[in-house]
């Protein structure tokens, strides 16, 4: 007889084998992998390392008027990264404003299935395409630049954030809604007076997470000309200047890490309980295993 542990192990093994079978079907020649690691090492030493930090130097044109210690603010890396953050910020705000009313309509504990499915369809349409595809669409529609990026990421944010929001609303405690329903409050009053305040912590936390997500994805949409640091990455990729690309990637990595850390710290203020311990600044950065407690 298979015990509970045995059953789980068997399921895990079956999953692993089926994964391997599918992978094997997709790879025609395993021999191609043999030299790949050496290729990576060669590529890293010849093209990527050391990174070319001239990307942090002020551009020749337009002339930089900022004094010397801060002249890096005229560099392509700084300008691109700040533009990416701005695009992510505006898209998150716009996305949240648009998605919240749709999420309220999509929540099944507030509306009839007909209204709920219609709203869910709208949200699903928004996230069915990645922001990169939306960016290509808007670059064709309104041309190159950050505006295309803002539109693209706003639409994706509406779809993605809206889903998180209606799931949070559906997961809220039933008792406040019962009390509001028996009182005869209108849907508008219930939404504004009960649902939004009751799930506010989740909604704020999700918006912060979405901003962090948008910063990460904002670096990609620039590749298709929708503004941000991705534009410069694409430019240097075309000229095969991989050392400069490496410098941009390190800058993106540090920025994303910083925003990730700020996001976790900010979200800790919107925990359900007041007496929850705030993460220390160190605690956010260090993995669990390296922490004292």
């Amino acid at each position: 007889m298979i015990t509970g542990f045995g059953k789980n192990s068997f399921a895990l093994l079956a999953l692993f084998i089926s994964g391997f079978v599918v992978l094997n079907g997709m790879i025609d020649d395993w021999g191609r992998l043999s030299g790949s690691f050496q290729n990576l090492i060669d590529f890293f030493h010849q093209s990527l390392w050391p990174p070319d930090w001239t990307v942090l130097e002020a551009q020749a044109y337009p002339v930089c008027t900022t004094p010397e210690p801060f002249s890096f603010t005229c560099s392509t890396a700084w300008i691109g990264m700040i533009e990416t953050i701005k695009i992510a910020f505006v898209s998150t705000i716009l996305g949240m404003i648009i998605s919240l009313p749709i999420a309220l309509l999509a929540a099944r504990n507030l509306n009839s299935p007909r209204i709920s499915y219609l709203a869910r369809f709208i949200l699903a349409a928004g996230r069915s395409l990645p922001s990169l595809i939306w960016a290509i669409f808007f670059v064709i529609l309104i041309g190159l630049g950050p505006l295309s990026g803002i539109f693209a990421m706003t639409i994706y944010t509406v779809g993605y954030l809206g889903k998180l929001q209606y799931e949070a609303i559906e997961g809220m405690d039933k008792a406040p809604l019962d009390a509001a329903n028996s009182m005869g409050l209108s849907k508008f009053e219930k939404s504004l007076g009960v649902v939004i305040p009751e799930s506010a912590n989740h909604l704020i936390s999700q918006a912060i997470f979405m901003f962090e997500y948008n910063v990460r994805h904002g670096t990609v949409i620039g590749i298709v000309g929708a503004g941000g640091i991705g534009y410069y990455i694409n430019l240097y990729l075309k000229f095969l200047q991989y050392d400069k690309v490496m410098a941009y990637l390190i800058i993106i990595f540090i920025t994303v890490l910083l925003i990730d850390f700020l996001s976790i710290y900010a979200r800790s203020f919107f925990n359900e309980e007041d007496n929850v311990n705030r993460p220390s600044w160190w605690g956010v950065i260090l993995p669990d295993i390296l922490r004292w407690q």
Binding site: D173, A175, L177, G184, G193, V194, P197
Partner: peptide, 19 residues
């Protein structure tokens, strides 16, 4: 029932905790 005519206090009170 007409709006406001029934006041219901559920067992779990149904208060908006963050308000």
């Amino acid at each position: 029932p007409p709006r406001g005519s029934v006041g219901y206090i559920p067992q779990r009170l149904g208060l908006v905790r963050h308000a």
